[in-house]
Amino acid sequence: MEDRDLIFETVSLAGEILLASGAEISRVSDTMERIARAYGNPGLDTFILSNGVLLSTGGGSRSYRARVRHIPLGGGRLDRIDAVNQLSREIELGLHTPAEAHERLEAIRTMPSKPRWQQVLASGIGSGSFGYLFGGTGQDAAAAFLCGLVLYLYFLYLVRGHLSKIAMNISGGALVTLCALILTHLGLGSNLEMVTAGAVVPLLPGVAFTNGIRDIADEDYISGSVRLLDAVLVVACLALGVGAVMAAYTAWGV
Score class of each variant (00 low, 15 high):
residue 180 A to L: 06
residue 103 E to C: 11
residue 196 T to I: 15
residue 149 L to H: 08
residue 156 L to H: 12
residue 64 Y to S: 13
residue 171 S to P: 04
residue 115 P to E: 07
residue 160 R to P: 03
residue 93 L to N: 14
residue 202 P to A: 05
residue 88 S to H: 01
residue 208 A to Q: 08
residue 51 N to I: 09
residue 223 S to V: 09
residue 199 A to P: 01
residue 2 E to I: 12
residue 42 P to R: 01
residue 140 D to S: 07
residue 196 T to V: 15
residue 162 H to L: 10
residue 74 G to R: 12
residue 239 A to Q: 07
residue 48 I to A: 04
residue 39 Y to P: 07
residue 107 A to V: 12
residue 252 W to R: 13
residue 43 G to I: 05
residue 37 R to W: 05
residue 113 S to A: 13
residue 122 A to F: 09
residue 179 C to N: 08
residue 121 L to V: 13
residue 172 G to P: 08
residue 237 C to F: 09
residue 36 A to N: 02
residue 245 V to N: 05
residue 34 R to I: 12
residue 177 T to F: 02
residue 88 S to Q: 06
residue 162 H to S: 11
residue 196 T to Q: 12
residue 183 L to E: 02
residue 194 M to Q: 10
residue 7 I to H: 06
residue 143 A to G: 10
residue 43 G to L: 11
residue 212 G to F: 03
residue 193 E to C: 04
residue 245 V to H: 01
residue 201 V to F: 05
residue 65 R to L: 03
residue 85 N to A: 10
residue 253 G to R: 12
residue 236 A to M: 14
residue 146 L to R: 06
residue 225 S to Y: 12
residue 146 L to T: 02
residue 192 L to N: 10
residue 50 S to P: 02
residue 232 V to K: 02
residue 131 G to I: 06
residue 239 A to D: 05
residue 173 G to R: 05
residue 126 G to T: 14
residue 24 E to A: 08
residue 227 R to N: 10
residue 16 E to S: 02
residue 167 A to H: 10
residue 31 T to W: 01
residue 147 C to G: 02
residue 91 I to H: 03
residue 47 F to T: 09
residue 214 R to F: 06
residue 85 N to V: 12
residue 254 V to N: 07
residue 48 I to P: 03
residue 112 P to L: 00
residue 187 G to P: 05
residue 114 K to C: 06
residue 249 Y to E: 09
residue 91 I to Q: 00
residue 113 S to N: 11
residue 64 Y to M: 13
residue 141 A to F: 07
residue 249 Y to K: 00
residue 11 V to E: 03
residue 123 S to G: 14
residue 1 M to L: 11
residue 52 G to C: 07
residue 100 E to H: 01
residue 218 D to G: 14
residue 72 P to W: 07
residue 142 A to W: 11
residue 232 V to H: 06
residue 120 V to P: 04
residue 228 L to H: 02
residue 181 L to V: 09
residue 244 A to C: 09
residue 136 G to P: 01
residue 220 D to T: 06
residue 155 F to Q: 12
residue 243 G to C: 02
residue 61 S to T: 14
residue 253 G to Q: 15
residue 213 I to D: 00
residue 159 V to M: 08
residue 200 V to L: 01
residue 218 D to Y: 04
residue 113 S to V: 13
residue 152 Y to K: 13
residue 90 E to A: 14
residue 233 L to S: 15
residue 132 Y to P: 02
residue 149 L to I: 15
residue 158 L to W: 08
residue 151 L to E: 03
residue 47 F to A: 09
residue 158 L to Y: 08
residue 58 G to A: 13
residue 90 E to K: 09
residue 242 V to E: 01
residue 79 D to G: 00
residue 135 G to I: 04
residue 52 G to R: 02
residue 92 E to C: 14
residue 201 V to I: 15
residue 175 L to W: 00
residue 110 T to P: 00
